[in-house]
């Protein structure tokens, strides 16, 4: 549990960080909260020759809302996310998830950018951001690009961010009237990665009709999964237990879990169904003004 030698750089600007990554293509890795990377280095599963520590780049840790987006700076700690009153009031899916990620010690160090960039299907924030239709701001040597969360996750630990790029901001579209969101996580114990995690966003009109919805799934496939069929199915439906149950079955069918100590595949798939139904209900309650 001792990592091999590495070189350590502490850039003070995003440009400098990206420059270092570009210069050492493939050998360098960004160090954010270190809560995934250092664990992998101790097990020698990751052996970067160079670490680019982005923690001391100023103005990269913030949670603020403008008229279009909730903007989260990449080095914002996950603990900060769930403490933010804006998030609690209008993006409860994120504060729900923020409270369920790992344990308080990890949340105090781990960053939102790291959680999103790592590409671990067990991380909780990606499913939430898929459900919310978020987008990511990426800095590279050739400038800035913006990528939607949907399509960002290619495989386990593989995202659309190149080795010489850095994520700087996570943007969540500002919810309109009648929006509700929630995240549920089934875990064996505190600090465990999800057996199943479900993030849901719904928008309802005054008659209770669902205008549109988004459902993201954690740890039931090689990446976080956007449950497209289930999400699309809900658009235009009137809220009822039967409708939610149908959507839950569609979400279950979108999942592709592997068996592990948490349970066999049929169990995990059924848990996707159960937790999708429950999470949709919670999101709908919130959309209608409940807690």
């Amino acid at each position: 549990m001792y990592p091999p030698n590495f070189e350590y750089y502490v850039p003070s600007t995003v440009e400098e960080a990206v420059g270092l990554l570009d210069q050492h293509q493939g050998d360098a890795k960004i160090l954010a909260g270190g809560q995934s990377l250092i664990a992998m280095m101790k097990l020698r599963l990751a052996q970067p020759a160079i670490l680019v520590d982005i923690n001391r780049i100023p103005n990269l840790a913030y949670v603020r809302e403008d008229d279009k987006f909730l903007r989260i700076g990449a080095t914002t700690r996950t603990a900060e996310l769930s403490r933010s009153t804006i998030v609690q009031a209008r993006y409860p899916i994120l504060s729900d998830a923020g409270r369920e990620i790992a344990d308080p010690i990890v949340r105090n160090r781990g960053t939102v950018g790291g959680n999103v960039s790592h590409g671990d299907p067990g991380n909780d924030l990606p499913a939430c951001l898929l459900a919310m239709g978020a987008e990511f701001e990426i800095h590279g040597p050739k400038g800035i690009r913006t990528l939607p969360a949907r399509g960002f996750y290619q495989d386990t630990f593989v995202t659309s961010v190149a080795t010489n790029e850095m994520m700087t901001e996570i943007r969540v579209p500002r919810p309109g009237a009648g929006t509700g969101s929630a995240y549920s996580k089934m875990e064996r114990k505190v600090g465990d990665f999800a057996t199943v995690g479900v993030g849901a966003r719904v928008v309802v009109d005054s008659s209770g009709k669902i205008l549109n919805a988004g459902i993201g799934l954690t740890n039931v496939g090689p990446t976080a999964i956007y449950a497209t069929a289930a999400s699309d199915f809900l658009a235009g439906k009137t809220d009822s237990d039967a409708v939610l149950a149908q959507a839950a079955v569609l979400a279950r069918d979108a999942s592709a879990p592997s068996p592990d100590n948490r349970g066999p595949v049929d169990f995990k798939k059924d848990m996707v169904r159960i937790w999708t139904r429950r999470t949709l209900r919670k999101a709908l309650d919130r959309a209608k003004g409940g807690k």
Binding site: M186, R188, T195, R262, G263, F267, R273
Partner: peptide, 16 residues
């Protein structure tokens, strides 16, 4: 007493 074992005990009698 993992959740999946309890789930299996219930569902072997009463399939979902």
């Amino acid at each position: 007493l993992s959740s999946y074992k309890i789930w299996q005990a219930i569902h072997s009698k009463d399939p979902p």
